[in-house]
Amino acid sequence: MSYQVRLQNFQGPFDLLCHLIEKEKIDIYDIPIAQITKEYLEYLAAWEDMDIDEASEFLLLACKLIEIKAKFLLPRKQEITQEEEATDPREELVERLLEYKIFRRLSALLGQIAIEQEKSFTRAGDNPSDWFPEGRPLEAVTLTDLTEALRAVLKQADCPQTLPLREKKISIGEKIQELRQALKRSNSRLWFKKLFTKTNDPLDIIVTFLALLELIHRGELKAYQENSFGDILILRCGE
């Protein structure tokens, strides 16, 4: 058990399996599935801080190995058809391993070529036409062009040049004072809808409404409504 070998150093489950097969000098066409499954699982067991995202692919192959092992353990039917007899449960795995090994070998060859190629230097700066097949996208565009374009877009979007900074916050207390004065000015009677014509600031509307409720609650005001959905008349008590 080579506990020093970290699983993360393998390129994937096939890489690990190939490593085990090569280490034990096993004939790939006749893999002792019980032995190799045991060794494979030992590697997984030694994986400290197993991250399930990283491990899932290794676990998938572990399942496959166990499945194959189980197939070997199961008693075979007596009357085996010829077709069934021909299939070895390991066949698909061996095919995939062989294909993987071919590409592992080829990748090593490509790696060697790459190292050789690194020794030959070409002129810096590749052909721009390679990067921009339709010509240089910003050729003949100046900074002024860009700022002009931005200005035009902003104008079209009708963005206000300045944005109001909202700092004013009205308290219910202030609003109560306002309402009292408004009532004084209007002979102690006000129409509900009129209270909200001056503003469309949601906060202002809410505070006005709360101030109104507060004054009714205190018994300073009364509200009358003639019919459903009609306007509400607000009167000062004692008038």
């Binding site: 489950p13 096939f14 692919e57 995939r96 590409f103 990748s107 090593a108 490509l110 790696g111």
Partner: peptide
């Protein structure tokens, strides 16, 4: 390199087919 080798020899190839080979 492994992925590049698979693409170079088996192109055109989909991501799934590459993953099937590399596991």
């Amino acid at each position: 390199l492994e992925t590049l080798a698979i693409i170079a020899y088996k192109q055109p190839i989909t991501k799934y087919e590459i993953e099937r080979i590399r596991g």
